[in-house]
Design a protein around this nucleic acid. Structure first.
Lengths: 202, 202, 202, 202
DNA sequence: GATGAATGAGCTTTCATTCAT
DNA sequence: TATGAATGAAAGCTCATTCAT
């Protein structure tokens, strides 16, 4: 891409370009191995330019995580607003979560998989944002319990258990790409059904 | 004890010290952020000394992963050999896996959580070793299916779904230590029961 | 030299400064013993700065050799174009070669004296460039042979023998500076005359 | 080679083994790139053992050079003692020098080619030893002059010019092994004849 | 806003050398 | 005599970051 074309880009788009480039590189090379230089090269700007948009490298990571949480929370909130049968809502919520991970593997890995200890700053921010995200799942579970559909009445216990199930599948699918998984949709169906069947009152 | 023997033990001791220091730092700071210098400092040796025991940095990681897989595989194999009711075996296998993660959080994170892409060398070795590890779970599932106890007859499908469930819980518990989980044992019980109830034939 | 003075230097001169410093050090300390740090120190810049101008250490060496070959080839080519008596051309060519070595001892040592085996990269490039350089001498010899002036008609044999003679003198003069040579010009005259007399038809 | 065989070697042979291994490595890898460790490995001893025989690395280099000069000087002295026709003696001296270089390329490169500046210690020793070596050639030249056979009566001037010629050929042949030289014996004959013809009185 | 030259600290790794055994 | 563990220094190189322009 030539200089002129680059100049023609929307100026306010640079921030997004940086985030996108960083996201890709953070996952492909790892956060530590991704240098500001490489990000700058990818978007064809000088290294110094990055610092006009972000305080430092870790802030880029923070923004990526925030953005991820926010987008996932939005998707889950939409399901919450749905008036369908609670158990169907829950099922759809689980699927939505998994699908989000598959659709945004880079986002997911950076935000949900990488151990927080690997990153210096912004941890609390991300945890709080993660909690907001988690609350959507929690509310759907609550509706199921209020409707007497579950075999356990502790909202948090169930919500956390479900989160564990779908996070496990999501993280394995996006990080262990070399593993010989059975056909993906079948596996997703199975995991979701196990969770639903496993909590249903009988 | 002869001089040679004592020397050999001393040497072995330093090796272990290095591995232990590395394990801690790899998790606290991440593999990339952990420098040989920092490991050497922690055990109060000169940086060069590390190279008397390990070819390079990645070999340290390889040894840690190998050790982890090997220890977990051993635990799971023991359960496989048990002649108890298949479903009980399975239940115990799931618990054992989770407990292993809780007992060896550093091992678990490095080996199972960190995205393989973050690490250059030894990947295939670790993946193969991981597969061996997974096979133990698979065999237990097979026994359950042969006994007609499950609602699904695809061994791999079930085994992978179960792995997802327990890996999800394990990784969340060891990496999201700041998250307000419900009482740990209760959560573990719940997750295990969900998986078992979710696959049981009715 | 102070910081201000350094700042005042032409930016485009830094490349040359690096090359000059490297040339000196490569000869004084040897290529291997010359560290990037030492080069940087000599020109009063940070080590990393070198890498803004050269990909790595061997590229500095490559540039120095290239430059040397190119400059010598140019000088020799000029003599080739001369229409004087062939034997006079040849005599002048030999003198020019020796004078070049004396005028650029560092260039000469690095490019012609240091054993190629000591250096890993760029070897073929330098050998090829050296061959181009040698061809100029070869052409002058050819003219002498075609004019029936020599006692041997094998162009390569004569050219290589002459090269040996003048390279021997050049390399001794620039490397064995402590040796009690007779007065330099007299020695040069003698060597050149020996070569010319030694190949002349009688 | 096993440990037992190694133990069986003559103890006083270790010094020689070290020198031989060092000689090979110094030329193949360069002095700087040859580590004490590599020398020790090659002879299957511990690094520390080297220091029982040599004060430091540079002393190894010194001993190699000394040995080389001594052996060459011996060969040339033998020719000096010969009572043949002076010019024949000289011719044989030149050939002997070149043949020595070809027979001991490693020795020759280390001692005569590598710029003295590349090496820190022992320089004066080697130069002095080199001078002793040179004196043999000088004496043969003197005999030729006393017999009125040469076109120049300055012993040093002629001797140094001859040294230049044969050193040039020798160093090119042993260092530029990739260069497409004409058949070696023909080239040697030519160079020797050029030197002899170039100094002969007419 | 954007540049890119420059820095200083840090990296992994190798080295010559020492010394207790 | 010989070992080999250990060291401190230094290597080549990359980094996040700054700042004059």
């Amino acid at each position: 891409m030539g200089v002129l074309e680059r100049r023609a880009r929307q100026k306010e788009g640079i921030r997004e370009e940086i985030l996108e480039a960083a996201r890709t590189l953070f996952v492909k090379e790892g956060y530590e191995s991704t240098s500001i230089r490489k990000i700058a090269e990818k978007i064809e700007y000088a290294p110094g330019t990055i610092y006009l948009y972000f305080r430092d490298k870790s802030e880029i990571l923070d923004r990526i995580c925030e953005e991820t949480f926010s987008r996932l929370a939005q998707k889950l909130a939409a399901i919450n607003r749905d008036q369908a049968a609670p158990l169907d809502c829950l099922r759809r919520g689980l699927r939505t979560y998994i699908q989000f991970a598959l659709d945004n593997p880079n986002h997911y890995i950076i935000t949900f998989v990488q151990a927080p200890g690997e990153v210096k700053s912004g941890e609390s921010i991300r945890c709080e944002a993660g909690a907001r995200c988690f609350n959507n799942l929690r509310q759907t579970v609550e509706r199921c319990i209020l409707a007497g559909l579950l075999n356990c009445t502790d909202v948090d216990e169930v919500a956390q258990a479900l989160w564990a199930g779908i996070h496990g599948l999501s993280s394995l699918l996006v990080t262990r790409t070399g593993f010989p998984f059975v056909e993906q949709n079948r596996l997703i169906d199975r995991v979701v059904e196990i969770q639903i069947e496993g909590i249903r009152a009988r």
